[in-house]
Simulated assay, not measured.
Amino acid sequence: MPPTIATSLKLPAELKAAIDEDARKQGLSSHAYMVRTLADASERARLREQFTQDALAAEQDMLATGMGHTLEDVRAYFAQMAEYRAGRAERPAPLVPRKLL
């Protein structure tokens, strides 16, 4: 287990009470709840940044190659995928990029 570093937070009383209640409902100590919540928030921030970088790279690739998908094709694909996941349709064929530019 990696070493830990002590820190302190000054929380408004109402927030601390809400944290205590949420932690109790989840069977956690307030400390464990706050550590988990902060770790989750940090991971979401990293994932959001990676998503942004991936989107920018995909845009650059699309601009360089002219290949991509129309919004209508993507919406239709996701609608078909929802039907498939609900057990009401066959799995849709993968989208194939086409020249857009």
Score class of each variant (00 low, 15 high):
P3Y: 10
P3S: 12
T4D: 08
T4L: 04
T4N: 10
T4K: 14
I5N: 06
I5P: 01
I5C: 06
I5M: 14
A6P: 13
A6G: 13
A6H: 14
T7M: 13
T7I: 09
T7H: 12
T7K: 15
T7G: 14
T7D: 10
S8A: 07
S8W: 00
S8I: 00
S8H: 12
S8F: 02
L9R: 05
L9H: 13
L9Y: 11
L9T: 00
L9E: 03
L9N: 01
K10G: 06
K10Q: 09
K10W: 07
K10A: 10
K10L: 13
L11D: 06
L11S: 11
L11N: 12
P12E: 11
P12L: 06
P12I: 04
P12R: 13
A13C: 06
A13E: 09
E14G: 09
E14R: 11
E14A: 09
L15Y: 04
L15I: 13
L15E: 08
L15N: 05
L15G: 05
K16T: 00
K16N: 06
K16F: 11
K16I: 10
K16E: 11
K16A: 14
A17C: 01
A17K: 08
A17M: 06
A18H: 04
A18L: 02
I19L: 08
I19A: 03
I19G: 03
I19C: 05
I19K: 02
D20I: 03
D20C: 02
E21L: 12
E21P: 01
E21W: 03
E21R: 08
E21H: 04
D22V: 08
D22C: 13
D22P: 02
D22G: 05
D22K: 14
D22H: 13
A23I: 01
A23R: 05
A23D: 10
A23F: 07
A23E: 07
A23K: 10
R24T: 04
R24A: 07
K25F: 09
K25C: 07
K25W: 01
Q26E: 11
Q26V: 00
Q26C: 02
Q26F: 03
G27N: 04
G27I: 00
L28M: 14
L28D: 05
S29D: 08
S29L: 06
S29C: 06
S29H: 04
S29P: 05
S30D: 00
S30K: 02
S30G: 15
H31V: 08
H31P: 07
H31Y: 10
A32W: 09
A32Y: 14
Y33C: 04
Y33S: 02
Y33D: 03
M34Q: 03
M34V: 14
M34C: 11
V35H: 13
V35L: 14
V35K: 15
V35E: 15
R36T: 00
R36S: 10
R36C: 04
T37Y: 15
T37Q: 11
T37P: 11
T37E: 12
T37A: 15
